[in-house]
Write a protein that binds this DNA or RNA. Sequence first.
DNA 1: GTGAATGCAAAACTTTTGCATGTAA
DNA 2: TTACATGCAAAAGTTTTGCATTCAC
Lengths: 132, 132
Amino acid sequence: VDKKERFTRMTNQRLLLLEHLQESKKHLTIDQLYSAVKPQLPKLSKATVYRNINLLEEEGLVQSLDIGKKEKLYEVASEPHHHFVCDNCNRIIEVNLADIWQIKERIERKYGVKVDSYQLIAKGKCDFCQRH
Amino acid sequence: VDKKERFTRMTNQRLLLLEHLQESKKHLTIDQLYSAVKPQLPKLSKATVYRNINLLEEEGLVQSLDIGKKEKLYEVASEPHHHFVCDNCNRIIEVNLADIWQIKERIERKYGVKVDSYQLIAKGKCDFCQRH
DNA sequence: GTGAATGCAAAACTTTTGCATGTAA
DNA sequence: TTACATGCAAAAGTTTTGCATTCAC
């Protein structure tokens, strides 16, 4: 296995995209990210957003989240954490269960694999929508 | 909340698509499903595959699986189960952990939500690819 | 200076839709 | 019979790419 060395440059576009993802603390679609950064960088092209997000994801700085809608969501990478999506209002709640890391080990033992990442997506009705 | 009543018909197209999903016991993309059924139904249109899969998913007969690739995968609905995807060879292993159902209850208690479905996707290297 | 990165537009894909026709119930 | 489903083609939407130019290092 021959790992090709890569050189990447911190361009203004890449920096602003990353910063916006960090500050917004939300899960954003490509389009939302593009619209958010566009005002500060009027010539920004959507192709650049795609290229940078894909690159940042490969590098592990950004994680993608697929909740079954058409578009993926992106967020800055962090501790493995999980998500609950309300089918009614589309709210996303970050889920943390203290001992969920055990799952990784159990999968590895039971199936003889090496788990590098995992994510749990639960869907249903959030607190508010259950009562309305 | 006004639930509109729906009437669906068991057409030959829908039947063959469902049967193929059941028999193949795999996770198929729309395109794979289309190609597989096309020979038996030469006039089959891809629009029909999309329409039927979406409908079957709404009805709960089919589950979709999003492993981060471009296209979704579909399989017949069954017990909640989870998946491991090998980043190297793309093999998909179905994961079953006896007590994983506890997670549902714990999420519900901790976050006050009602969980209707959940799926775990783990990624990494499978047994074979680890050693080659 | 040099090669990565960008912007733009075109191309490539994936998914949905309008409409006339077919067909299950 | 009649309303749902299909096939076809066009439309809509998403993501990638070619290429000349710009810019980080």
